[in-house]
Nucleic acid binder design. Structure first.
Lengths: 139, 139
DNA sequence: CTCACTGCAAAGGTTTTGCAGTGGG
DNA sequence: CCCACTGCAAAACCTTTGCAGTGAG
C-alpha cells in the first residue's frame, strides 16, 4: 500500500486528507502487527513530531467508523488496530501479547456452510471471527 | 449454582472463603451476562455495602488465575467476566453491547477436526473461540 | 495465632473532551 | 473562505497498588 493508495482510501470515504491521517494509516499498514495507539505514536514521531496523542485517538476513531481499519481486542486492556478489512482470523499468543493474521479459505468455507444451515434463535447472523489461541515458536 | 457449590468451588482451589469472594462469584453466575467489574459492584452493593472496588478487581484477578472464571473482551474497552469455563462461543451484538453464550457440539467438532489436520507454521495450537457477530431481535 | 485478604485512598495508564487556532477542499 | 481537523491540556475513566487493619482457617 503506497502513499497514493492511502490518500485515495481516505478520500474515498469523503474524509479530508491530512498529513496526520496519512501518517497514521501508513503506520498501521507498515507496522502490520495490530499496533496500539502508542505504537503508532512512536512510529510516526519522526514524520509528525508535533502530533498530539488526542489527535491519534480521534483519527483512529474516524478510521474505524469509516471501516478503513478495525479494532482488535485482547485480554490485555489496550485497544489495538488492524488495517486488514478482508475476512481473516487471528492467532493469539497466550504467553506474550503477539497477534498474527490467519487467512484460510477452507476455514471460511467450513464455517460459512455451518452458519448457513444453522439457525440461531432470536439472532441475525452477520459474520464470524475465530480466535485461535496457542503459542508461537518464536516466543 | 447455589451458595454451597460456590463455596466449594472457591475452596477446591485452596482459596479462603470470604463473604466478598462468594458474593462476587454469585453475582457473576446470577447476572449471567458477562458483567463488568462495575456491574458486579452494583449487584452486590446490597449484601456487601462496604466492599471496595479495589477488592473486586483483586478477587476477579484471583478467580481468573484459578480458572474459576474467564475474561471476555469486546470492542468497548471495559473488561468483562464469564463464569462458564466449559468450551463455548459468544454471540456479539454489533449494535448494543450484549454478549450471549453459544454452545454447539457440532461446531466444536467441525473446528477440532479442522485444526487437527491443519498445520499452522511456527504456532502451537491450544484452542479456539468463535466470535459470532450479528444483532439480537430483542435489541 | 498467623498470614492471606479487605478497605481505603492514592496513583497509574489509557482514552476522551473542550476549545482556540489552523489548513484542506 | 469555511468548516473540519489539529494541538494542547485537562479531565474522565478503568484498573492497579501500597499499606494498615481484619478475619478465615
Amino acid at each position: 500500500m503506497n502513499i497514493d493508495q492511502i490518500r485515495e482510501k481516505i478520500a474515498s470515504k469523503g474524509l479530508k486528507i491530512t498529513p496526520q491521517r496519512v501518517a497514521i494509516l501508513e503506520a498501521i499498514y507498515n507496522l502490520n502487527n495490530h499496533p496500539t495507539a502508542e505504537n503508532i505514536a512512536d512510529y510516526i514521531k519522526i514524520s509528525q513530531p508535533n502530533i498530539a496523542i488526542g489527535t491519534i485517538y480521534k483519527v483512529l476513531e474516524i478510521l474505524v467508523k469509516n471501516k478503513i481499519i478495525k479494532k482488535v481486542t485482547t485480554e490485555a486492556d489496550k485497544m489495538r488496530y488492524d488495517g486488514i478489512t478482508e475476512h481473516h482470523h487471528h492467532l493469539y499468543c497466550i504467553e506474550c501479547d503477539l497477534i498474527e493474521d490467519y487467512f484460510d479459505e477452507e476455514l471460511n468455507q467450513i464455517l460459512e456452510q455451518y452458519f448457513a444451515k444453522k439457525k440461531i434463535n432470536g439472532f441475525h447472523f452477520k459474520n464470524f471471527v475465530v480466535q485461535i489461541n496457542g503459542t508461537f515458536d518464536k516466543c
